[in-house]
Computed example of a mutant assay.
Amino acid sequence: MSMPNAYLPSIPHLNHEARRRLRQLREALGLSRPKFADKLSIPPTTLKNYELGYREIGGGVFLLIANHHELNEFSPWLLTGINPPQLILTADTVSTLNP
């Protein structure tokens, strides 16, 4: 039996970060939930449930984004949170300037 790696974040923490980044991406793109859900071919209520933490985001959603011609550039950041794209940095900057 192996010991858990103390340096790895917990699954609940990772799920929280994933839903936060998914919503952050949608908002940075200037899309409503229904429009973003349509882009991903998922029901808007499913997207809402992901963003609000009522459902865990499944790997299939990340695969949809990774294979989407308009969204695939955001996949590494969505999964890791490392090296946010300029679009996200701009949205963060705007939101901090206009609370």
Results as ranks from 00 to 15, higher is better:
residue 85 P to A: 08
residue 71 L to N: 05
residue 31 L to A: 01
residue 20 R to M: 10
residue 21 R to N: 02
residue 33 R to G: 07
residue 73 E to M: 14
residue 11 I to E: 02
residue 90 T to N: 15
residue 24 Q to F: 09
residue 96 T to W: 15
residue 35 K to C: 09
residue 41 S to N: 12
residue 29 L to V: 07
residue 94 V to Y: 12
residue 30 G to Y: 01
residue 68 H to F: 06
residue 25 L to K: 00
residue 83 N to L: 09
residue 46 T to L: 12
residue 43 P to Y: 12
residue 86 Q to C: 07
residue 24 Q to N: 08
residue 28 A to R: 00
residue 61 V to W: 06
residue 74 F to K: 04
residue 68 H to Y: 03
residue 27 E to P: 00
residue 15 N to E: 11
residue 77 W to C: 11
residue 41 S to M: 10
residue 79 L to R: 07
residue 51 E to W: 04
residue 4 P to K: 12
residue 89 L to W: 05
residue 94 V to D: 09
residue 55 R to N: 15
residue 70 E to V: 08
residue 89 L to P: 02
residue 30 G to H: 04
residue 45 T to A: 11
residue 53 G to L: 03
residue 19 R to V: 01
residue 48 K to H: 14
residue 13 H to K: 11
residue 6 A to Q: 11
residue 41 S to K: 12
residue 24 Q to K: 10
residue 98 N to A: 09
residue 28 A to K: 00
residue 97 L to M: 12
residue 59 G to S: 12
residue 89 L to I: 15
residue 33 R to K: 14
residue 40 L to E: 01
residue 18 A to H: 06
residue 1 M to G: 15
residue 89 L to A: 10
residue 88 I to E: 03
residue 42 I to Y: 01
residue 94 V to S: 09
residue 34 P to Y: 04
residue 74 F to H: 10
residue 99 P to M: 05
residue 79 L to S: 06
residue 7 Y to T: 11
residue 96 T to D: 13
residue 90 T to Q: 12
residue 29 L to T: 04
residue 9 P to M: 05
residue 73 E to S: 13
residue 69 H to K: 15
residue 12 P to T: 02
residue 86 Q to M: 08
residue 12 P to Y: 03
residue 63 L to Q: 15
residue 2 S to H: 11
residue 30 G to P: 06
residue 15 N to M: 09
residue 65 I to Q: 08
residue 36 F to N: 01
residue 68 H to A: 08
residue 93 T to D: 13
residue 22 L to M: 13
residue 39 K to A: 14
residue 75 S to D: 11
residue 93 T to A: 14
residue 41 S to T: 06
residue 88 I to L: 03
residue 56 E to M: 09
residue 41 S to G: 07
residue 35 K to T: 15
residue 18 A to T: 07
residue 58 G to A: 08
residue 11 I to H: 02
residue 20 R to H: 09
residue 94 V to K: 14
residue 62 F to C: 00
residue 81 G to W: 05
residue 11 I to G: 01
residue 12 P to I: 02
residue 24 Q to C: 07
residue 6 A to R: 11
residue 10 S to M: 02
residue 12 P to N: 02
residue 26 R to Y: 09
residue 54 Y to I: 11
residue 58 G to L: 11
residue 71 L to S: 08
residue 38 D to V: 00
